[in-house]
Amino acid sequence: MRKLKHTFLYILMIAILLIQIYPIFWIFMTSLKTADEVRSKSTFALPSSFCIDNYIRAVTTSNLALYFKNSLIVLLVTVAALILFASTAAFAIGKMRFAANKWLLSFFLLGITIPIHVTLIPLFQIYRNTHLLNTCWALILPQVGFNLPLSIYLFITFYKFIPDTIMEAAAIDGASVWRIFASMILPMSKNCIITVVTMNTIFIWNEFIFANTFISAAELKTIPIGLFDYIGAKGMVDWGATFSAISIFLLPVLLVYFLLNKGIISGMTAGAVKE
């Protein structure tokens, strides 16, 4: 009886699992179908051959490579800035001894509840006046700003596990505060850095609303909006190329996810789950 219940439980879990991955599976399958198959065969049917032509067409008829490059630039600069700024600010707030630190932490945490929509109109105007509209800075700056609070919070929580006594010992030995941070704290924070990097990478890679508002120049578009355009133009007529483009977009994310899922999951739920 107990065994039967267990078997039933596993069947149920696997059924839900199949529902969860089916859309992803469907995207990859559809990316390999010929136009004929899409039109005349069931949407559940598997592709009869691996139609790589779709991928070639997706790459040649879209600016996918360019969008990829733009996304990568935004990603690298934003993540680098986030790590540098969050790790240092968190050190100042969490480990240095100043009365204002408590207040500063609350100030930054305010940013977690604030919807980005409130900032779209003012930022749009500021960027227009300062000629930052249609530059990669229009995407990098607000994404650093909005992802800073959670990143700082994660670093502060992590630093709590580093005992103050070892910093004090280093200080007695004559190490400066810069030295303590750069050659003690930072190397010890490797795990936290990985969490912050992976979490932010997912957010930034998929970011849509800032890019859709601040970037209209084709040569500066990131993948999500470039893809959105491409879908608008081809989504109805050329499914093969459309879903090939989507697959190219999803593949690196999924690869990274299945390699580093622990860090990504703990990063994205960090606000809610106490370690």
Binding site: L17, Q20, Y257
Partner: peptide, 18 residues
């Protein structure tokens, strides 16, 4: 857990199109 979580990391544009 890992597979159930997977859709969370996907782009809205991609999921929406499917």
């Amino acid at each position: 857990k890992t597979v159930y979580f997977a859709p969370t990391i996907l782009s809205s544009v991609a999921v929406s199109q499917a």
